[in-house]
Amino acid sequence: MSAVMAMNPVAERRPLLKVNKLTKHYGDHIGCEDVSFTVYPGEVIGIVGESGSGKSTLLNVLSAQMPPTSGAVEYDLSAKGLRDIFTLSEPERRKLMRTDWGVVHQNPRDGLRMNVSAGGNVGERLMAIGARHYGELRREGLDWMAKVELDTSRIDDKPKTFSGGMQQRLQIARNLVTRPRLVFMDEPTGGLDVSVQARLLDLLRGLVRELGIAAIIVTHDLAVVRLLADRLMVMRRGHVVEAGLTDQVLDDPHHPYTQLLVSSVLQV
């Protein structure tokens, strides 16, 4: 048995995020209900479902942007072990959010400072944790712009002069610069045309694998989770109706809703 455990690296790793019976009600309406799952370091979880199924609610609660009605979200603070993020003090939680976590918004305008140059956007998190050397910030900015395939000569341009795809890549660079262990992404490819989407997905897959970042990706696009996610959760009306390995869920859907979802995708 121990030999089997040793061969399976995931089994002996400590969970990074543990979600237990998470429920969010908006008055009488259900945002999401009774959601439980675990994320291990370096793992990418996809959450899919139609609009209004509670995906974004779930993501907002997980990333501490909204308090849950009940249930717990435990995160592995390296020094203190698993701790419920809603029992942390606000400064601790804010620090966690700008160092160990990243949030990539669907609309880059929500995640970027549009009147601050690209380099300043990338450097902001570093400055927030105490970087006070301009030359190093500059180097880091150029380095990350290259990593997300942005033209480094545009480091001093403001994001409002960037195209939608470039803004999204800049937002990713800005989040990954502090080497977070967990990144939340809400429809990272929403609003982008398919060729730009493909490049962004390629880039994301590379970065997530290279840096060993765990990610929770919310999307309604099954192609995105097929490419990026190790595991998949299908949500409907606030509940998780099916969960499992991505290929397993997509190739052999059990729940009628998942079957409908998979069969709705147009095969070109």
Partner: peptide, 19 residues
């Protein structure tokens, strides 16, 4: 101010030097 999160001020100085 309450949590002494002042990194943003340096973003302004960064912008100055960059420009």
């Amino acid at each position: 101010h309450g949590y002494a999160e002042y990194g943003l001020m340096h973003v302004r100085l960064y912008e100055d030097i960059a420009r």
